[in-house]
Amino acid sequence: MEEQAKVLAQNKSRKQLLSNRLVKNIRKHWVLYLMILPGIIYYIVFKYIPLLGSVIAFQDYQIFNGIAGSPWVGLDNFIHLLNYEDFHEVLRNTALIALYQLIFQFPAPIILALLFNEVRILILKKTVQSLFYLPHFLSWVVVGGIVFELLANQGIVNAIREMFGYAPILFMQEEAYFRTIVVISGIWKEVGWGTIIYLAAITAINPSLYEAAVIDGANRFKQTIYITLPLLLPTITVLFLLNIGNFLELGFDQIFNLLTPMTYSVGDIIETYVYRAGVLQGQYSLTTAIGLFQSVIGFALLWIFNRLARKSEQGLW
């Protein structure tokens, strides 16, 4: 008994001590706390308060009657969703494209960063790097237009095909090419930008490791495999986890600008569907339900992969 009381008292005083320390800490570094305030307010106002609006997923939301005046329908929207044939198609497309992006698009900047790292002529390296960054600053509307033009009847791809005697193909209206085009155009646009973090991580690697490796007779390739890559792994893991949390969020802009009705069956994803049904046709409840569903999946994936990563002590939290 006495022991227990002692432990309790200890705990209590510990708590007090902690809060005391927090107050002290705030007093001491009040400027820093002040500086973080806008960020906190931002998250509360733009992330947490809108989160409350998710309740309309459980309502038959009527825009003129507001959340208070709209009837509650329980899980109807979700049941409708799961029974809705189009939704299955949309979900399958989203998952498949996400998977392809993860397999092909995610490693691309890593490889490119390793290649950049091997370029010894500084001017060349900087120039090439800048050239690779550039497409990132174009909007998808522009890139979409370029892709359509390149693959048009008179476009360069078909012109080359013609030179070799093949009939032109209208790639943008063929289901078979759609996902490939999405992945390739995505890599083209974002690969350079993606290298920035990796390059920064590479610079942080201690040069003495390379020196040691050289003494041991490792060539450039071996150095990359046995030094650079392993030391990059924590960065890769963190970026991978951040990526997996957004697994089903492919980015509306890209797909929307590449999609045509002929490729709906392979390219219509959650975001484009939500845009059509929600923003254009005003079905707010159904689309909120989809959004919620998407977030829950994202969270579950993030949690699972974080658990796995923590086993090697590299998780996000």
Partner: peptide, 10 residues
Amino acid sequence: EGLLDNETFL
């Protein structure tokens, strides 16, 4: 037969 613009739907 190429009588309708083959790029119609694009």
